[in-house]
């Protein structure tokens, strides 16, 4: 990625939240980031309603056979470059569900993933830390 693009991307990243087959826990922790205790909107991080407006894609949950095609399509529709952050143990590796018949692989088999935030569920502080680390790494590249 060109440097100016990364600069644009990392200044106030707009995020889109995609829940595959998740248990809701990571999702409510993501929403929790936007509410007064953590309030990441201070830094210009806004949850947007469409993938076409997003700079960062937050993915949670494990991929199942029914939504794998939709996740691929959603990623194709995203404006590139887009950063993908896998949040939670399910999105990173599949957690306890990897032995299930409906499991279609962790996220990094389906779409490129740039950062992993493990935990079940990860604390909101861990998610902030993950995104900050990703941005720092991209800036220093």
């Amino acid at each position: 990625m060109a440097n100016w693009k990364i600069n644009m991307l990392t200044r106030s990243p707009w995020v889109f939240h995609l829940a595959a087959a998740s248990c809701n826990n990571c999702d409510i922790e993501i929403l929790d980031l936007l509410t007064p205790r953590h309030d990441v909107e201070r830094f210009g991080i806004v949850l947007v309603g469409s993938i076409k407006h997003a700079d960062v894609l937050l993915v949670t949950g494990c991929v199942n056979r029914k939504n794998v095609a939709r996740i691929k399509r959603l990623y194709d529709e995203a404006p590139k470059p887009i950063l993908v952050v896998a949040i939670g143990a399910c999105a990173c590796s599949g957690n306890m569900f990897r032995t299930g018949y409906q499991f279609a692989g962790p996220f990094d088999k389906i779409i490129p993933v740039h950062a992993y935030v493990p935990g079940c569920p990860p604390k909101p502080e861990a998610m902030i830390d993950g995104v900050v680390k990703l941005i720092t790494k991209l800036k220093n590249k």
């Binding site: 087959a21 998740s22 949950g61 494990c62 199942n64 029914k66 939504n67 939709r70 306890m96 569900f97 032995t99 299930g100 018949y101 409906q102 499991f103």
Partner: peptide
């Protein structure tokens, strides 16, 4: 339905 199905009942048997 089915976008959120993980097959928990079957995993539980193992």
């Amino acid at each position: 339905a089915g976008y959120n199905h993980r097959g928990i009942e079957k995993i539980s048997e193992g």
